[in-house]
């Protein structure tokens, strides 16, 4: 069953990423150059919308809390993000869209994926040496969320405000920005 779901959800996800134009490095690079906000609007709306519905479903008890997976915040998240940002800007690809772009027949995406395999391999080798450094020092409390998931191992910043309200405010803000951002700029 999970194998079937992996193939179904993965196929749909790849299809959607391609159709929104995320597999086109032109669109990514021009988003980062603040010239073309199409993908930014897509992303902001997708995050806002999914977050709102997720917390409504959670408050109704429909979603199994076992499926909520909060990643820890540590120094390496920020530093890794910075390194990621350099490669993202030069190539116009991220891991998921690189896979999709290769499927769309883009050859530069194959070189991106190859570089990614080497980068991931290097990290696999050096993890032993970096895991005890400041890079893996927890910050901001570790596995923390803004809206309360009611899961004990995940502390919350806004503990006394209902989760749907917190997630709702963030979601509405993201969706409003998505609507007001122009499609293109000069």
């Amino acid at each position: 069953m999970t194998i079937f779901l992996a193939i179904l959800l993965g196929t749909v996800f790849g299809f959607i990423l391609d159709r929104v134009g995320a597999s086109n490095p032109q669109k990514i690079i021009n988003m980062l150059r603040l010239k073309d906000f199409h993908l930014m609007k897509v992303l902001l709306f997708a995050i806002g919308f999914s977050s709102l519905i997720l917390f409504i479903l959670l408050s109704l008890g429909v979603v199994d809390t076992e499926h909520i997976k909060i990643k820890s915040a540590y120094t390496g998240v920020l530093i890794g993000g910075l390194i990621f940002g350099l490669g993202f800007a030069v190539s116009g690809y991220c891991p998921g869209t690189g896979v999709v772009a290769a499927g769309a027949g883009r050859k530069d995406a194959l070189f991106f994926l190859l570089g990614g395999i080497v980068g991931a391999l290097l990290f696999t080798f050096i993890f032993e040496f970096v895991e005890s450094t400041f890079l893996f020092d927890k910050i901001l409390g570790g596995k923390v969320t803004l809206a309360n998931t009611n899961i004990e191992k995940y502390p919350t910043i806004f503990e006394n405000i209902p989760a749907v309200v917190v997630a709702g405010i963030i979601s509405v803000a993201l969706i409003v920005i998505a609507f007001f951002l122009p499609k293109k700029s000069n």
Partner: peptide
């Protein structure tokens, strides 16, 4: 670019999908 993106993503523990989309969806 791919090298930097995946090295960075592994150091960070996730990428655009895991951290940015799934993470922000859960208000992480």
């Amino acid at each position: 670019g791919g090298f930097l993106v995946l090295f960075g993503a592994r150091l960070a523990g996730g990428c655009t999908s895991g951290h940015m989309m799934s993470g922000m969806m859960q208000t992480s």
